[in-house]
Design a protein around this nucleic acid. Structure first.
Lengths: 351, 351
DNA sequence: GACTACGATGGGAACGTTCCCATACAGGTT
DNA sequence: AACCTGTATGGGAACGTTCCCATCGTAGTC
């Protein structure tokens, strides 16, 4: 039965300060210096007394500026996504924007629904880390002038900037590292590439990078959700092959690394004897003995770049040609890619 | 140079459909059935043709219903927080709300700023998983009628529901399990309890639970950010004590488990010989040999309960007495709490 | 002393909705 | 024929801002 003191409005503050709403609006907008010192003082006092907070919703309505950036995340429980999101959020904040996050759980239907929702809130820009199937919704948004940034996947259709890992270079780093460590036969494990261009890019680079380096190998693509069982069989087959060339597994992303590590442990395969390496650094990679070698993505930089991209279009040239920003991975060598014979640097910590 | 077809408005749709804005508003609100079949058809056609989407901002302004729930997260990179957030988001969605997330990186200044921001967007309810220092801002919000839910911490001052783990019972489970496994001397490692009531609750229960069970032990509280170095020393001291009673470490949360596991590995201490157990299940706990025993929190249920709490106050009794909902942890026993002597069940997978 | 210029302020029309209150016509009752 | 009652629709005033366009002094200029 506490009474609810209605939230104060601009007009109420104006009345309390003995001035007009225009002046109060100026005070809270960015024209404060146009007001006389004395009036500023009166407004400040009245506002504080009433506990006034500008209503962002009303602001957004009039000016058309919601000060909201939307982000579509395919899987909010994926550490990579969260790390990037962290960068995105901080960058938004630095530019005076707030972030509206929508998680799609990898479900295209939710993706469409959430896209519509973000549009309904008139987000001024959109960071997309989901399948983003061509989506008329997405194209429409772009046509209506909402800048789009894709994380780690290209869409072709909609004009949008792309920010992400330099996939080709990352795969090159991995192949070079594995070759230098003495592994000659590789299995590349990836989720189905159909859905994301970065998966395709990595896979292709892997295939084309083997020959020139004198490596043998092949790729295994499966959905971790639906075909997890198949992974074990495929690993068995790979490990049971005839021949004595040292073998290694290369995981296309953090989820795969997790699944593969589980499968290897279930089989009591010692890491290192069979090499293991993954794209995406996870906090536990150093902990699983003898440590899993990874390629760390500069997630913070990627997040910030995404927002920078949006800001540029928001403030400057909205219709410039789509641009790509690719970032380099950082190799973190650990024991999982030291063959027992030549083991020299058993573990190296993240700096 | 692409021209920007301004986003269509209600009035434009009305004109195109040869009707009034009221009818269009009814169509997109929840009074569609009041319209004649024929008019519905005309509106639908016009809306589709123009690509109309109701402007949520304008809606929010008029009705005072922003359809937004805010969530304040202390550390968005903490898997526990993210897991709960996932539950919150899905529940919001199910109730027709969207989630505005603000991450504070454990910084009180950011916390205040973000709280103000969420208030500015007129969120209809607030889920708080941050220090939430008494905060006049918070009390004000509560007074103005915004329902509040605290995750895993009580504030005392502001009237708010609390949702979280049944800390006392969780600690009891841990102590019982460790005792049954034969450990007699425990070290409880926690972050400083000052900031969060749940940390205090766990710590206290630990202290009071030792005696009745015939256990010895003590607690170590340190900030992982600033005193990480001290952890190693404290572990050394604990492990080097005279006496032959088997010893175990109990970690107050996931962050602590990570830090402690790192410290133990750096010291080549085999898990199990020294027992290790943690609150919060992390995806890698099964992977670090011989597996780390954990108490899993029902994060999804907690997130959903938080939103349910808000909805209840939003729809029903806004001023009912603050209520507490506590959820039970689930014990996942693994090798880290099997003493070498009595090792029988080396590993057990998460179901 | 009339003119312009400028700095400080205020009035009022938007922005795109919702929702209260008409209006219009149909079909019953008296 | 005058009266309700109900259903399908439309007009217009909010909601809390921003921003254009006054207004009103007070100087500075010729």
């Amino acid at each position: 039965m506490a009474q609810t003191p209605q939230r104060a409005t601009l007009v109420e503050v104006a009345r309390a300060a003995g001035t007009s709403k225009t002046s109060v609006s100026r005070y809270f907008g960015d024209e404060r210096e146009r007001l006389s010192r004395e009036l500023q003082g009166r407004i400040a006092a009245a506002a504080r007394r009433l506990g006034y907070r500008p209503n962002q919703i009303a602001r957004g309505l009039k000016g058309g500026r919601s000060r909201l950036i939307g982000m579509l995340v395919a899987d909010i429980r994926n550490p990579y996504s969260v790390a990037v999101m962290h960068g995105v959020e901080r960058a938004c904040q630095a530019h005076g924007y707030s972030l509206l996050v929508a998680n799609t759980d990898n479900d295209p239907a939710q993706e469409r629904r959430h896209l519509a929702l973000l549009a309904a809130y008139r987000v001024e820009g959109l960071v997309i880390n989901a399948a983003g199937r061509p989506g008329r919704e997405l194209t429409r948004l772009a046509e209506q002038g909402t800048p789009l940034v894709l994380l780690d996947r290209e869409l072709g259709e909609a004009p949008a900037d792309v920010v992400g890992l330099d996939n080709a270079h990352a795969i090159d780093q991995a192949l070079d590292h594995l070759r230098a460590a003495g592994y000659g036969e590789l299995l590349y494990v990836s989720e189905p590439p159909a859905q994301a261009s970065s998966r395709r890019a990595r896979l292709e680079r892997f295939r084309h990078g083997l020959g020139p380096r004198g490596l043998a190998g092949e790729a295994l693509c499966l959905s971790l959700d639906t075909e997890a069982a198949a992974l074990g069989g495929a690993l068995d087959a790979f490990l049971a092959r005839p021949g004595t060339v040292p073998r290694a597994l290369l995981c296309a992303n953090g989820n795969v690394t997790l699944a593969v590590t589980r499968a290897l442990q279930a089989r009591d395969v010692p890491l290192g004897k069979v090499g293991l390496m993954g794209i995406d650094e996870l906090e536990w990679c150093a902990l699983v003995a003898p440590g899993i070698t990874t390629l760390a993505q500069p997630t913070d930089a990627i997040g910030q770049a995404a927002v920078a991209s949006l800001m540029q279009r928001l403030e400057g040239a909205p219709h410039a040609d789509p641009c790509h920003r690719r970032y380099q991975a950082r190799l973190i060598p650990r024991g999982s890619t030291c063959r027992p014979a030549s083991r020299h640097a058993p573990e190296q910590e993240t700096p």
